[in-house]
């Protein structure tokens, strides 16, 4: 698959501050790419460069093969920015109509109607946006992003400030766009759970530097280490637990209800542990290799870069 976004050695200096430092990442067409990082890490600056709002001090950024500074690149992108940018004094329909005209759509009425239905705002199409809830506004902003049927969607914190039910609604719309419509999505978010559910690839940025980039599943496997969880049918007796724990080559770390957690040691394999447990009369319900959650990866990476 060809590249959707290519960010090559991008740096951005704003005044005295280097907001981005040699940032590199690539997203492929069809990717749902999560862009994570704490406040002030450089996420919004990255998005502004992608949308041609800021010029990189050095490096090259392309979108679907076009340089981001070209108007042609922006025709291929739909976006939702941190601030939804909707006009409060206009109706939902008028807001979409305005953007449809900007993108040169000649007969947008039918498309606008269909998109409003898709985000479940058709009933409120004639209402002023100033009367909308935050969740409705975000759905409308997503609808606006899709008006001209772009190949790529750039979403900056689309669920920020939205109540839980609103977040679910917004997330559903994004999932539909990603999985049913197959659009490439660049999603900047603080919400790790959301990113884990929606995205197949992520990049983690901190203090202007990309710290990690790759497929979510692969990163989870790589970052999970050698942690194995064995679930038993019965709660393990304390003496047996103490005995097994004393065998250092086993790497038994903890017991939580009926689950034993092992950290695999050099030369020890999972079947070795299982057969030892069976020999000691332990009935095994299941064995699983524990994968690190996105939250654990995020914390681990940010901890690594914390100044001493």
């Amino acid at each position: 698959m060809s590249d959707a976004i290519r960010f090559e050695d991008i740096s951005k200096q704003l005044g005295e501050r280097e907001v981005l430092r040699n940032a590199n990442f690539v997203t492929k067409q069809g990717d749902v790419f999560g862009y994570l990082g704490p406040n002030g890490a450089g996420k919004t600056t990255t998005i502004r460069i992608l949308l041609g709002l800021l010029q990189p001090t050095s490096g090259k950024a392309t979108i679907l093969g076009e340089d981001v500074s070209r108007d042609e690149a922006r025709r291929k992108i739909g976006f939702v920015l941190e601030s939804d940018g909707l006009y409060d004094n206009k109706t939902a329909e008028e807001n979409l109509w305005y953007y449809a005209q900007i993108y040169g759509m000649t007969e947008p009425a039918e498309r606008i109607d269909r998109i409003l239905s898709r985000v479940e705002l058709r009933d409120r199409a004639k209402d002023k946006v100033g009367t909308y809830s935050k969740g409705m506004r975000q759905r409308l902003a997503l609808a606006r992003a899709m008006t001209h049927n772009p190949e790529l969607l750039v979403l900056d914190e689309p669920t920020a400030g939205v109540d839980p039910s609103g977040q679910i609604e917004v997330r559903e719309v994004i999932l539909n766009m990603a999985h049913k419509e197959g659009r490439t999505i660049f999603l900047s978010s603080h919400n790790l759970d959301e990113v884990q559910r929606i995205c197949n690839r992520i990049a983690l940025i901190d203090r202007g530097e990309i710290k990690l980039c790759g497929e979510v599943e692969q990163l989870r496997r790589e970052m999970s280490g050698n942690v194995v969880e064995i679930e038993t049918t019965q709660l393990m007796a304390e003496p047996l637990f103490a005995e097994l724990k004393s065998l250092s080559h086993l790497g038994l770390r903890e017991r939580k209800d009926k689950t034993l957690t092992f950290v695999l040691q050099e030369g020890t394999r999972i079947p070795d542990i299982v057969s030892l447990l069976v020999r000691r009369g332990v009935e095994i319900e299941g064995v699983s290799k524990k994968e690190a959650s996105l939250e654990e990866i995020y914390s681990a990476i940010l901890k690594e870069v914390e100044p001493s």
């Binding site: 922006r74 920015l81 939804d84 940018g85 006009y87 953007y99 900007i102």
Partner: peptide
Amino acid sequence: AKGPIESLLATPLT
């Protein structure tokens, strides 16, 4: 102040 100008500039408008 409210953000529409940023969204407007993110379109192909010069």
